[in-house]
Amino acid sequence: MPERKPAGFFRGEKDHPTLITEAATSLEQQHRDRVRRYVMIMAFRIPCLVGAAIAYGIWHNWVISLLIIGVSIPLPWIAVLGANDRPPRSKDEPSRWDGRRNQKALDSRPHNAIDS
């Protein structure tokens, strides 16, 4: 009988190492994720333009076609903003706020005015 390899609960679990560190994802992985997000959003633009042409061909209604094109206009801006966004913070990531909000002004004592 061939020897069976032990398998984890999930398929392919042994192919990926277990994450045992709190280190952030690598810059290369972050870049790949941002490029993937950009491409996915921009992939909706061409079907919108084609859909507008098909809608005009079927219904001969330019209003529907313009609405479909109107949906595709902000997609490049949305894609760029989404691609340039940093990865979301985890709940365990410490806040960088140093608490200045609760501090009083540097010199809060009353001042005497000098009359000349």
Rank of each mutant, 00 (worst) to 15 (best):
F44N: 14
W97Q: 13
I69P: 04
G70C: 01
V63K: 10
R36A: 09
I20V: 13
D85V: 02
V50T: 11
R37C: 01
S90P: 05
I78V: 15
I20D: 14
E28Y: 08
P94I: 00
R89V: 03
E93Q: 14
L81C: 11
A79Q: 06
P47H: 05
G12Q: 07
R96E: 12
I41Y: 10
V80T: 14
A83V: 04
I68Q: 06
P17Q: 09
N61T: 08
I46N: 05
R86F: 07
R34K: 07
R36S: 07
S26G: 05
P76S: 03
P76R: 10
W59Y: 15
M40V: 15
W59G: 05
D33F: 04
N61V: 09
I41F: 08
V39C: 11
V39N: 11
L66A: 15
A23H: 08
R32H: 10
R101G: 11
P17G: 09
I58S: 00
I41N: 06
I78R: 07
S95R: 10
L49S: 04
L19Q: 08
M42F: 00
G70I: 01
F44G: 15
G82E: 02
G99T: 04
G82H: 02
L67S: 02
S65K: 00
P17Y: 06
S95L: 04
I73H: 03
I58H: 12
W97A: 15
I73G: 05
I64R: 04
R96N: 10
W62I: 13
S65D: 02
A79Y: 00
M42I: 11
A53G: 14
I54E: 09
I58F: 11
V35D: 04
V80K: 13
V80W: 11
P76D: 05
G99R: 00
C48Y: 13
V50G: 13
R45W: 07
E13Y: 00
L66E: 06
L19C: 04
R34A: 15
M40W: 14
I41V: 09
V71T: 10
L81A: 13
R96P: 05
L81N: 14
R32A: 12
G57E: 10
V80C: 06
R11N: 08
E22N: 13
V63W: 13
Y38S: 01
N61I: 06
G99E: 02
V63R: 12
R11Y: 03
D33K: 10
M40P: 00
I69Q: 08
E93S: 05
N61R: 11
A43I: 06
A24I: 01
E22W: 02
C48I: 09
L27C: 03
A24E: 11
I64H: 03
I64W: 08
I73C: 07
K14D: 05
S65F: 00
D33H: 07
D15V: 03
S26D: 12
I46S: 07
Q29S: 06
K91A: 10
K91L: 09
G51H: 04
L19G: 01
V39D: 05
G99A: 03
L27H: 06
R32E: 12
W59C: 06
G70P: 00
V71D: 01
H16L: 10
K14C: 02
M40Q: 12
G70W: 02
S95V: 02
I58N: 01
R11H: 09
G12Y: 04
